[in-house]
């Protein structure tokens, strides 16, 4: 059996929404290169929805696939909906992750939530 599911490999090899947003409404960073993973999410918010989500990730195949999946799940959602995306849901959407990758590489939802909190703080809404 291969180490990663086909879906993980697809998102790893063809990551969606890679990049940065100029003047983002919010950014969220989790991880640390010393541990092997660092994710930065950028969001653009319009009428309470995530109009755009982009990311840059340093890390293993799982970390890159997780970032890509989170960006896909979050784009177009309301902020409340996006806050309900959990790391566990992301892993399910990816067809599972190897047990030892569940905690350290599966931080995408945390990074997204941080970006939303950053937006709320900046815009003064709900902070």
């Amino acid at each position: 059996m291969p180490f990663y599911s086909e879906k993980v490999m697809d998102h790893f090899q063809n990551p969606r929404n890679v990049g940065e947003i100029n003047n983002p409404d919010g950014t969220g960073e989790v991880g640390n290169p010393v541990c092997g993973d660092l994710m930065i999410f950028y969001i653009k918010v319009r009428d309470g929805r995530l109009e755009d989500v982009k990311f840059k990730t340093f890390g293993c195949g799982a970390a890159i696939a997780v970032s890509s999946m989170v960006s896909e799940m979050a784009k177009g959602r309301t902020l409340d909906e996006a806050m309900k995306i959990t790391n566990e849901l992301v892993a399910v959407e990816l067809g599972g992750l190897p047990p030892n990758k569940m905690h350290c590489s599966n931080l995408g939802a945390d990074a997204l939530h941080k970006a939303i909190e950053d937006y709320k703080k900046k815009s003064g809404s709900g902070a």
Binding site: E20, E29, L38, K56, T57, F58, I64
Partner: peptide, 15 residues
């Protein structure tokens, strides 16, 4: 894809 490389290109510094 790497934020570390991005940072290095923009700032000339290591993250």
């Amino acid at each position: 894809i790497s934020p570390l490389y991005n940072y290095f290109l923009k700032s000339g510094k290591r993250h």
